Amino acid sequence: MRKVTFGKPIIGDEERNAVQKVLEGTLLVHGPIAKQFEADFASYTGSEACVSVSSCTAGLHLCYFDMGLGAGDEVIVPAQTHVATAHAVELCGAKPVFVDAEIKSGNIDISKIEERITPRTKAISVVHFLGLPVAMDKVCAIAEKHGLKVIEDCALAIGGRYKGKHVGLWGDAGAYSFYPVKHITTAEGGVVITKHEDLAARLVHKKAFGVDRNVTERKEPGIYDVTDLGFNYRMNEMQAAIGIEQMKRIDGFLEKRKANYDTLYAGLENIDGVTLFEKPGADFENSHYCLSIILDEKMRADRSKLVKAINDKGVGTSVYYPSPVPYFTYYKEKYPVTGDEYPVASAISYGSIALPVGPHLGAEDMEYVAEMVKKSVGEVF
């Protein structure tokens, strides 16, 4: 039986040697390696500035914190996303106001955004679901009309572009994740990219306690001032060293993901009871994080049986995500919902199965996955 894991970080001698080189020195934080990684990522995305952070969540939180977001404020947030997207708003004391998804892509339903905007709304949060870009010109037009900021959650979207522009550069800022199964990894960590250099400068300051000068900038050791409230949201030099080597492989990683995605997509078309997200038009450049199948409503109650059947054949799966965020206990208790207010997000959360397309796999793996999914559907239904 073939073993097809859902995700696997691809770490080689280059990454190990880069980390070892850092460990042979004494500067493990605030060093040149993080700055080099930031420069490499900025160059790849075409951004004016890039700020390394400890995680994508930290990056999102920093952006809202810098906005002065607080009690009484609201942010439009997709219902179909990782809970971190909403947590970043909640941690500032503001309220996430959820909007349902569209079924063809899993992305926020742009047609429903304006009806959720109130005088308290300060920003629109956009998530490029599974790496497929949102139609950002439409979102930005709404934001400009209402005087709102736009923060892009690009956790699964490295390499995603809309109308030729990399995601994260349409709005005011975009945050990325380098968790082990993402497109590249730094073990943990993230970055924020932005077209606003003044915003980047403030984030650099606030990610390190609001201290006015870091260790390498102090004329007298241990002497500094604190001019702002801030956090410890820094990326260390070991993580950045891994990131530099990973960025050298990003084009190859993305090419392999696309090839795997296309092979698997072709193998999964025309299965009774199973729907795939629509392939986007030329304006949308997908980062191909994974491929999710969506089960018809009559099949959703038995999703766990289908997952088990697929897993028993050696194919790893996941779910993105197990519930619309407003239905998680924390949010449901704080912001009660009545009935099924997010039917499309529910259909995706409760009826989808995510399948692997990572660069650790090849065409034969994709053919095997498609065959096992078809076989499992036949067995269960």
Rank of each mutant, 00 (worst) to 15 (best):
residue 186 T to E: 11
residue 202 R to L: 13
residue 192 V to I: 13
residue 216 T to A: 15
residue 210 G to D: 06
residue 253 F to T: 01
residue 244 I to K: 06
residue 184 I to H: 07
residue 189 G to F: 02
residue 196 H to W: 05
residue 218 R to E: 14
residue 240 A to V: 10
residue 214 N to A: 08
residue 223 I to S: 10
residue 235 M to T: 04
residue 223 I to D: 10
residue 236 N to K: 03
residue 232 N to F: 14
residue 228 D to F: 12
residue 221 P to H: 11
residue 219 K to P: 07
residue 237 E to S: 00
residue 250 I to A: 05
residue 185 T to R: 10
residue 249 R to K: 15
residue 206 K to E: 09
residue 247 M to N: 04
residue 230 G to F: 14
residue 239 Q to G: 14
residue 202 R to Q: 12
residue 235 M to I: 02
residue 198 D to E: 13
residue 244 I to F: 08
residue 241 A to D: 07
residue 233 Y to L: 05
residue 240 A to M: 01
residue 197 E to N: 09
residue 200 A to M: 09
residue 188 E to M: 03
residue 234 R to Q: 08
residue 218 R to Q: 15
residue 242 I to P: 11
residue 199 L to R: 12
residue 218 R to F: 06
residue 187 A to P: 01
residue 185 T to V: 12
residue 235 M to F: 06
residue 189 G to I: 03
residue 217 E to G: 12
residue 246 Q to W: 06
residue 208 A to R: 09
residue 250 I to S: 00
residue 237 E to L: 01
residue 234 R to F: 14
residue 218 R to G: 07
residue 244 I to S: 03
residue 240 A to Y: 14
residue 247 M to L: 14
residue 196 H to L: 11
residue 252 G to H: 04
residue 230 G to W: 12
residue 218 R to L: 11
residue 227 T to W: 01
residue 210 G to H: 00
residue 216 T to C: 15
residue 228 D to G: 07
residue 192 V to S: 00
residue 196 H to I: 13
residue 235 M to A: 07
residue 249 R to M: 07
residue 230 G to M: 10
residue 245 E to T: 07
residue 203 L to V: 04
residue 204 V to N: 14
residue 217 E to F: 13
residue 215 V to E: 13
residue 246 Q to V: 08
residue 230 G to I: 06
residue 235 M to S: 07
residue 195 K to Q: 11
residue 208 A to P: 02
residue 184 I to R: 02
residue 228 D to N: 11
residue 196 H to F: 15
residue 230 G to H: 10
residue 190 G to L: 00
residue 236 N to S: 03
residue 190 G to Q: 00
residue 252 G to V: 07
residue 238 M to R: 15
residue 238 M to K: 12
residue 236 N to T: 01
residue 194 T to L: 08
residue 214 N to V: 13
residue 227 T to H: 03
residue 218 R to T: 13
residue 251 D to Y: 08
residue 195 K to V: 02
residue 189 G to R: 02
residue 238 M to N: 12
residue 195 K to E: 13
residue 241 A to M: 14
residue 212 D to R: 08
residue 206 K to V: 15
residue 235 M to P: 02
residue 184 I to C: 04
residue 192 V to L: 00
residue 251 D to E: 11
residue 202 R to M: 12
residue 188 E to W: 11
residue 205 H to W: 10
residue 198 D to I: 04
residue 225 D to P: 09
residue 242 I to C: 12
residue 203 L to D: 01
residue 221 P to S: 07
residue 193 I to L: 01
residue 234 R to W: 11
residue 220 E to L: 03
residue 226 V to M: 08
residue 203 L to S: 06
residue 184 I to E: 03
residue 239 Q to T: 05
residue 184 I to N: 07
residue 193 I to G: 04
residue 228 D to V: 10
residue 231 F to R: 10
residue 207 K to Y: 02
residue 199 L to Q: 10
residue 211 V to T: 09
residue 250 I to W: 03
residue 231 F to A: 02
residue 232 N to M: 09
residue 206 K to N: 08
residue 191 V to W: 01
residue 210 G to L: 05
residue 232 N to W: 13
residue 237 E to V: 03
residue 215 V to L: 15
residue 246 Q to K: 03
residue 246 Q to H: 04
residue 208 A to C: 10
residue 207 K to V: 00
residue 233 Y to I: 00
residue 184 I to S: 04
residue 229 L to P: 03
residue 237 E to F: 00
